[in-house]
Design a protein around this nucleic acid. Structure first.
Length: 850
RNA sequence: GCCGAAGUGGCGGAAUGGCAGACGCGGCGGUCUCAAACACCGCUGAGGGCAACCUCGUAUGGGUUCGAAUCCCAUCUUCGGCACCA
């Protein structure tokens, strides 16, 4: 009990008292309130993905947000006007599930979670500008979602269409990218997704497909750009117009368009396949085939079921009893319906070339259809295709069995075929994308109501802008099920038509919540603005965002929607920029102890409150940054947190008790042997400035783990000299000052506390360390008089020699050769070559092996 | 299957063509203490040697180079993304 106080002459480091005190002080000073109108300094808009208010901030939120906060503070110390806002992605399904379960309103659940999370976010000691906070479930926010929708409708960027949509039994309709996996499950709840025919609202994002492929000027991680590129899936090829052949039941001559990336293989088409959803299926089916075809189409509508059961993905399909005519040679080929052709891609119909496509090959084999080779590599013309399709693109391959096109190189032949067809209006070169328009309708209560009215006389009538917002009703009766309660809320449903004044019905679908997150960073800049979604001058000055941080799990969702929405905002004349986020960084993900994603349902969530109570926020912040590279993440393990805590304790000791000694260290209080006071001072100064140089570079590159390692090294150097004659010297004092400044962005509380004590000790009035400027490196302090050079013989280090720093190349070579160890290894042989690497940082002596 | 990222001590990791294992955890030994905890100091890749030192070593096999964890080729493994996209 008493020994501790006997040993320390200064009070202990106690984050529990320090941290809340400084958080309160910063808050009262308004230290992190950004003056958006201050143009005297360069602006820096730092954005971190806003959280969903699930109830608790967990360690994963800290992992995203505290290093981002360090970035904010680092930039402030460089004189930039930093804007680092926070808000809540407040609409969404979990609130509804909780509400149904507990018989409450999703709003109450969401808002009380937000209150709790605000408190927890403050515990990070982060520099969020709370004045800019945005809560998307607030009518003052979502009214602008509705306003955007109306503008998009006017501009032809929003449309309603009935088509087969992906339907989740819990979430209702889903956008294409919200369906995941081979088994096609919902990205949020994991339920199996079905197909349904529904009239739904879409945003015409495919318009931007090509533009979205262009990442010029964006500093984004390569994997994200690759994923988006693959997702957009641009394919170049040709659209070829087949016609239907006349038959007993059909007059013929109807156009059947197919898209192909291989027009060179046109003559090899031996049958055609329509998707089950293809509009001409019913019309073209022969009477005697009708029963089979209808059965197959019905089965295909439920095809996810079949997909799950069949592991080998057999190519199924049925003939419709009609033929198509190949426009290049007039050949008749049979038409099939098969679900391996997708309704939503290309034209929903293909020409099947079994000789040169694996899927067509499998189908042809299963159904006994002819396989005709039309492309061959030199010398390969006679090889049969018993083992599978020939799909390779070998050098020198040419067309064969292709009439007048035989003998042409494949690529030229393809171009010639498209050219010939184009002249007759039977084909053209074409580009197809995998990207679909964004389906935004959701059959949920807790979202932004889509502002349209359905009138028997006037059809679809947009809600007039002056009537916005269309508010969600305050009371909601779920009757214990997730079925959209708006559909039976008479007060909400029944309206008069804005055009004719007759009774009409409101749209009950709400918008995909990804709409909310597609423009929130613009709203941060004027969250109270009632005159429009954004304030043009502020947006022009502050966006694009300089740096965005968040997880990569939204690579083809939020991060793609945000780009699309920005382009739509541009096209309705609201902004001029093309891209929202100039620089993107994806931090890794912290997994639970079990190596799985942290989630409440798994029960593997790590609660930072407990950790903060035990170690303080600064330790947790540093520990998360020290764990490893920020973009890597990894399973949570509290092992090692003590090491970071010890480092802060050492810093405390160094700063407040430089003259104390360690009874546990017999050397404590004396200089290392062979080191005089002048040497020691020089070493301290050198260590401090070298650290500063490295730490600055590490912050810039977001290498927080090595940044902290370097500060630990500096602390270790100072610890070695603690209690010695140089402790408390001018150089020591400078080193402590630099250490505090360097650590301030990462550990803001302890550095502020120690800084305030330094100022008090010096009799200087207090001012925050977080208003200090980033220190400058003194290059002369980094330089050294002598350096150690490793000497290699045949690439293996054999000796280390100490030479003057400014030694000439010739002298260095002489010194290296003079080494006794080198001489012994040379054994009288003359070196073949002497190499000096990195401007004399290393010498390698090459000698013939004995 | 296709696309992407990555494999380094007991563990997290550092070094991206030039001293492998910085920094930290864990472990071992010690100082302090009546004792324990805390704190501090030292050692800590493997093998060999009394020692100075030597040999091996960055998933595996090959290659380029005076020199490779780093570059190239092949293979294996792990993680992430996509899912019949014509």
């Amino acid at each position: 009990m008493t020994t501790e106080t006997e040993r320390s002459r200064v009070e202990r480091y106690d984050p529990a008292t320090i941290e809340p005190r400084w958080q309160k002080a910063w808050d009262e000073l308004g230290l992190y309130r950004t003056d958006l109108s201050d143009a005297s300094r360069p602006k820096y808009y730092l954005l971190t993905m806003y959280p969903y208010p699930s109830g608790d901030i967990h360690i994963g939120h800290w992992y995203i947000k505290t290093p981002t906060d360090a970035i904010a503070r680092f930039h402030r110390m460089h004189g930039e006007n930093v804007f680092y806002p926070i808000g809540f992605d407040a609409f969404g399904l979990p609130a509804e599930n909780a509400a149904i379960k507990n018989g409450i309103n999703p709003r109450d659940w969401t808002m009380s979670n937000i209150d709790n999370m605000r408190r927890q976010l403050r515990m990070m000691g982060a520099t969020f500008d709370w004045d800019a906070e945005v809560v998307t479930a607030d009518p003052a926010y979502y009214r602008w979602n509705q306003w955007f929708f109306l503008q998009f409708l006017k501009a032809g960027l929003a449309y309603r269409q009935t088509s087969p949509v992906d339907w989740c039994p819990n979430d209702g309709t889903l956008a294409r990218e919200q369906v995941e996996g081979v088994d096609r499950h919902c990205w949020r709840c994991g339920a199996k997704v079905e197909k349904r025919d529904l009239a739904q609202w879409y945003l015409k994002v495919t318009k931007y497909a090509d533009e979205l492929l262009d990442f010029t000027g964006l500093d984004w991680p390569e994997p994200i750009k690759t994923m988006q590129t693959n997702w957009i899936g641009r394919s170049e090829g040709g659209e070829i117009v087949f016609t239907t052949a006349p038959s007993d039941h059909h007059a013929g001559g109807a156009e059947l368009r197919v898209f192909t990336t291989r027009p060179d293989t046109l003559v090899g088409a031996t049958f055609m396949v329509l998707a089950p959803e293809h509009p001409l299926v019913a019309e073209l089916t022969a009477p005697d085939r009708r029963a089979d075809v209808e059965a197959y189409v019905a089965q295909a509508a439920d095809r996810t079921e079949i997909d799950r059961l069949s592991t080998d993905r057999e190519k199924t399909g049925v003939a419709i009893g009609g033929d198509a005519v190949n426009p290049i040679n007039g050949e008749r080929i049979p038409i099939f319906v098969a679900d391996y052709v997708l309704g939503g891609y290309g034209t929903g119909a293909i020409m099947a070339v079994p000789a040169h496509d694996d899927r067509d090959y499998a189908f042809a084999t299963a159904h006994g259809l002819p396989i005709r080779r039309v492309v061959a590599a030199p010398g390969d013309e006679e090889r049969d295709l018993a083992d599978g399709a020939y799909v390779a693109h070998a050098a020198g391959e040419r067309l064969v069995n292709s009439g007048p096109y035989s003998g042409l190189p494949a690529d030229e032949g393809g171009a010639a075929i498209v050219g010939a067809l184009e002249a007759e209006g039977k084909g053209r070169s074409a580009v197809t994308y995998r990207l679909r328009d964004w389906l935004i309708s959701r059959q949920r209560y807790w979202g932004t109501p889509i502002p349209v009215i359905y009138c028997d006389r006037d059809g679809i009538v947009p809600v007039p802008e002056e009537d916005l917002p269309v508010r969600l009703p305050d009371t909601v009766d779920y009757r214990g099920s997730g079925e959209n309660p708006l559909t039976r809320d008479e007060a909400f449903l029944n309206v008069t038509c804005p055009t004719c004044g007759e009774p009409a019905r409101r749209e009950t679908d709400t918008m995909d919540t990804f709409i909310d997150s597609s423009w929130y960073w613009y709203r941060y800049l004027s969250p109270e603005n009632a005159g429009g979604p954004i304030q043009r001058e502020v947006v022009d000055r502050w966006t694009p965002v300089n740096q965005y941080t968040g997880g990569s799990e939204h690579a083809v969702m939020h991060l793609l929607y945000a780009r699309e929405f920005t382009k739509m905002m541009r096209d309705i004349g609201l902004i001029e920029q093309d891209e929202p986020f100039r620089r993107l960084f994806n931090q890794g993900q912290i997994l639970g102890l079990d190596g799985e994603r942290m989630s409440k349902s798994r029960g593997n969530v790590v609660d930072p409150d407990d950790l903060v109570a035990r170690y303080g926020a600064d330790t947790i912040r540093l520990f998360l940054m020290f764990m490893g590279p920020w973009d890597q993440g990894g399973p949570w393990s509290p092992t090692g947190i003590g090491g970071v805590h010890r480092f802060l304790n050492r810093l405390w000791t160094i700063a407040l008790d430089p003259h104390g000694r360690e009874p546990g260290d017999p050397e404590s209080g004396s200089l290392p042997s062979g080191v005089d006071e002048a040497d020691a001072r020089l070493r301290i100064r050198q260590a401090a400035h070298r650290t500063l140089k490295a730490v600055t570079a590490d912050y810039e590159a977001f290498h927080f783990n090595t940044m902290i390692a370097r500060l630990m090294e500096l602390a270790n150097v100072l610890m070695r000299f603690r209690g010695s004659p140089v402790a408390g010297s001018e150089e020591w004092d400078e080193a402590v000052r630099l250490a505090l400044l360097m650590l301030a962005p990462a550990a803001p509380h302890i550095t502020e506390e120690l800084w305030s004590r330094r100022l008090a000790a010096a009799g200087v009035p207090w001012s925050s360390i977080h208003r200090e400027s980033w220190p400058a490196v003194d290059e002369s302090a980094v330089a050294e008089a002598t350096r150690e050079v490793p000497v290699q013989v045949n690439g293996k280090v054999r000796d280390r020699i100490v030479v003057p720093s400014d030694i000439s190349g010739t002298d260095l070579e002489r010194a290296a050769l003079a080494s006794e160890k080198v001489q012994a290894l040379l054994a009288g042989r003359a070196p073949l070559k002497v190499i000096q690497a990195g401007g004399g940082r290393l010498v390698n002596i090459v000698v013939r092996e004995a």
